[in-house]
Design a binder for these strands. Structure first.
Lengths: 215, 215
DNA sequence: AAAAAAATGTACTCTATGGTACGGTCATGC
DNA sequence: GCATGACCGTACCATAGAGTACATTTTTTT
């Protein structure tokens, strides 16, 4: 349990401390994320987080001087998931239908997983009081997905694979079709998760309807 | 300012009192509604409502013994708006396209007005902690609209005005198309209200796309 | 006019919670 | 091995807000 690291590293002197600190910060964010997503902003207590963390309140405050600051960092961390979402596979060499079905199924799967729903609820619930929160979320989440889709659709239109039209509108239509019905039910808690295979099935239907108009 | 009522009414003795009480209860609900819609459940304080009401806390508590109870009644009142929504004009004798455009525009207008958005935010934000809330809202709001649409579509299909298919799916598709893009932006606060005429314009587009598939 | 019911204002209790202070302990780094 | 920074536990402060108590006043009923 001693430091198993060569003492040669002299570029970052207090390296062991810093590493531990990062680790701890990570743990804090993880716990806080759980709390915020589960109980909302107002429903989350710093004392609760501290307790759940095992450590003392003093420690927590030494990392985050206020609830607001902690909330900010948690948001940063949570929207990271959405940033990765950008990595969604939009195979430009596959046939349009295949590419769209794949991306829609992926989109639907990600947007309907419990954590995404919890985040969505949190954002929507607090959007009235933290306008910034809504903006940040939108720009990092829906907006990027929209751009991605829109760009792909524009290219497909240019290639002649889709009929010429406003690609922005088309992208909106496609994502709306994807979420139709399911998302709202999830958001208000009428269902807890998507039935298995439903993402794939519905993606096919959505794309079919989309192509009926755009091809 | 004396009682200008004939003293003959002996069926409901203390009528003056009861009337006043109903009035007061109404005022309470109105103020509470404003608070809850604006600040969410946790952000609303009974003391604040009492103060805003002008009266004293004792009075407020004599009507509602707890915040939860008050919240419940506020919800009842607010979802009434949605119940009326059922009165939406679905002209069964008009051409399908006209009927759908009308109902979609109406739907979009109602769903995007600030109070509806505030309610939606409230419900979604608290759905995790008050599962009942989500259910009540869903049943009184989206579900009824869905049934209405679905029934109309089924009839149109039977008449041969729309191609035979699952009317439930079709209804979902139509309402999703209606809300495409706009609703999400409103919910996260990216925009505050719909641009004028946008409801009408978008309703036409949505119905056009819908009919491309279902006719 | 007198009694009953309801409303008011004020002051209070109790609990939760954000945030602080501090003395002791343990790991880290020199 | 010793100084230092991080951590722990715990007790604490201040404030907000739910809910209560009560003495006083207003309104309604009879």
């Amino acid at each position: 349990m001693q430091r198993p690291e060569p003492p040669s590293g002299c570029g970052d002197r207090p390296t062991r401390r810093k590493a531990r600190r990062e680790e701890r910060r990570d743990a804090i964010l993880e716990v806080a994320k759980r709390y915020f997503l589960e109980h909302g902003y107002a429903g989350t207590t710093m004392s609760g987080i501290a307790a759940s963390l095992g450590g003392s309140k003093g420690t927590l405050w030494s990392y985050y001087a206020s609830k607001d600051l902690l909330f900010g960092d948690v948001l940063d961390r949570v929207t990271e998931v959405f940033r990765q979402q950008l990595g969604m596979a939009l195979h430009r060499d596959a046939p349009v239908e295949t590419a769209l079905v794949t991306v829609c199924a992926e989109f639907l799967t990600r947007l309907t997983n419990p954590e995404a729903i919890a985040l969505h609820r949190l954002v929507v619930g607090e959007a009235g009081r933290f306008p910034e929160l809504g903006r940040i979320f939108y720009e990092r989440g829906p907006q990027r997905v929209h751009s991605l889709l829109s760009r792909y659709i524009a290219e497909a239109m240019a290639r002649g694979d889709l009929t010429q039209d406003d690609p922005d509108v088309a992208a909106n239509v496609l994502s709306a079709l994807c979420l139709a019905g399911h998302h709202q039910k999830l958001m208000v808690g009428m269902i807890d998760c998507l039935p298995p295979d439903e993402a794939e099935d519905w993606a096919r239907k959505a794309v079919a309807i989309f192509l009926r108009t755009y091809r």
